[in-house]
């Protein structure tokens, strides 16, 4: 599936929820389902700046594709992180760099993207693109 197909699938999945509570319960569940990051990557260098909650991110380059693992100490943040990982992981560096993540806005989670919100989803997406860029060069 392409990055946009995964985004569209998420949008469709969330369209089933009628209120914010179901939506956030789903995000919390996604956070619980996110595969844990390997302990050896849970270190200072892998922390994303600008997050109120701690977010660790690691990228691997295998067979021309980038695979991300991540974790957070806050469960809602972890859920948001898991969605971004789901969308961007397993694609080529070029696809990741050129991607436009419209699903956050479409799911009504735009507030989590703002710079004044301190969960740093924006910093996280930027960091993932930097990983992709590093793997190209």
């Amino acid at each position: 599936m392409t990055i946009n197909e995964i985004q569209d699938e998420l949008i469709e999945e969330f369209s089933l929820f009628t209120d914010w509570m179901e939506k956030y319960e789903n995000i919390i569940q996604m956070g619980k389902d996110l595969p844990m990051i390997d302990d050896k990557f849970r270190k200072e260098e892998n922390l994303i700046r600008g997050c109120q909650a701690k977010v660790w991110l690691h990228g691997d380059f295998k067979g021309g594709k980038v695979y991300f693992t991540a974790d957070s100490d806050a469960i809602i943040t972890k859920g948001l992180v898991s969605m971004v990982v789901k969308v961007l992981s397993g694609h080529s560096p070029e696809e990741i760099m050129q991607s436009e993540l419209y699903f956050v806005d479409k799911l009504g989670l735009r507030e989590h993207l703002s710079m004044t919100r301190s969960n740093g989803l924006l910093s996280m997406i930027k960091q993932m693109k930097i990983y992709a860029m590093a793997f190209v060069s």
Partner: peptide, 13 residues
Amino acid sequence: GSHPYDVGVILDQ
């Protein structure tokens, strides 16, 4: 067992 940020998001909603 909950991060203050998570509690804040729900109260905000």
